[in-house]
């Protein structure tokens, strides 16, 4: 990125001048991303909807990407900018690894992403915000960690679970009632899909599992074995199991009252 800003600054996302405009820009926005950690790793998942105002811009957008072998980033906000930011972030991690012969620490990666979001602040003020969720397996501490961001690049490490995007309020509420810190990997996978279902239930911009078109949430797991994205059959199984239960209990599992 430093090299880019020296040599071709015009292709960096933050350095473009914007024409003055009235009102909000109409560009596709990505919506809900959720993450939850379990002993031995972390799960990051996202729904598949992109909206433009009250329209659904895309039904099968992908918003969760591997950043490198041991980390992944999920994006909410202006889709075009966010995807490019992820591309640049991936490039930077890979470039560092090749030049230095060692990978960045998880902390270092999180800080780098923070700087990139901050450089987008001018655009964010005009309504083109990008708010990612970063999750990774910390090889040194041997556990999964989650970092959330705000539009100004402020970074905070989350304990247990986190969500970002328009449906994040509902997803967080859902996970708050369901999360325990001794969940297995499979249970955590179900947990995040439950949270996405609840977000889609109450937020019009978040897409639920689309059985007719076979579009299911993107679910990824990062453990000491590295990044893995669940294939369509695996994520459809989880989504269908939840759907099946919700036919009987539309509001999902009930937590104990006391």
């Amino acid at each position: 990125m430093d090299f880019l800003s020296d040599h071709s600054p015009e292709i960096l996302p933050g350095n473009r001048s914007l024409p003055p405009l009235q009102g909000a820009v109409e560009a596709p926005h990505g919506t809900t991303i959720v993450a939850a950690s379990f002993p031995g790793g972390v799960v990051l998942a996202g729904d598949r909807r992109a909206t433009m105002g009250n329209m659904i811009a895309q039904r099968d957008i992908e918003k969760v990407f591997p950043a490198d072998e041991y980390s992944a980033v999920g994006i909410a906000g202006t889709a075009g900018l966010a995807v490019e930011m992820v591309k640049l972030f991936q490039l930077e991690l890979e470039h560092f690894e090749k030049v230095e012969g060692a990978t960045l620490s998880l902390e270092g990666k999180a800080n780098r992403l923070s700087t990139m979001i901050r450089s987008n602040l001018a655009m964010a003020m005009q309504g083109l915000a990008v708010v990612p969720l970063f999750a990774g397996y910390d090889v040194d501490r041997e556990k999964g960690r989650i970092f959330s961001y705000d539009v100004t690049g402020g970074r905070s490490e989350e304990r247990g679970y986190a969500a970002t995007g328009s449906g994040s309020v509902f997803a967080r509420g859902s996970m708050k009632k369901l999360y325990r810190d001794d969940l297995t990997e499979e249970q955590t996978l179900t947990l995040v899909v439950q949270a996405l279902y609840d977000a889609a239930d109450d937020d019009s911009a978040t897409g639920g599992p689309d059985v007719a078109r076979r579009i299911y949430p993107i679910v990824t797991v990062i453990t000491d074995e590295g990044f893995r994205r669940l294939d369509d059959t695996e994520s459809s199984e989880i989504a269908r199991a939840i759907l099946e239960r919700r036919l009987e209990q539309p509001d999902g599992p009930r937590a104990a009252l006391l």
């Binding site: 090299f3 880019l4 040599h7 071709s8 292709i11 591309k87 640049l88 490039l91 890979e94 470039h95 090749k98 030049v99």
Partner: peptide, 14 residues
Amino acid sequence: RIGGVRYADLRGYT
């Protein structure tokens, strides 16, 4: 080598 990595990464990104 570093020059080559830069060349390749810049190409691949652009």
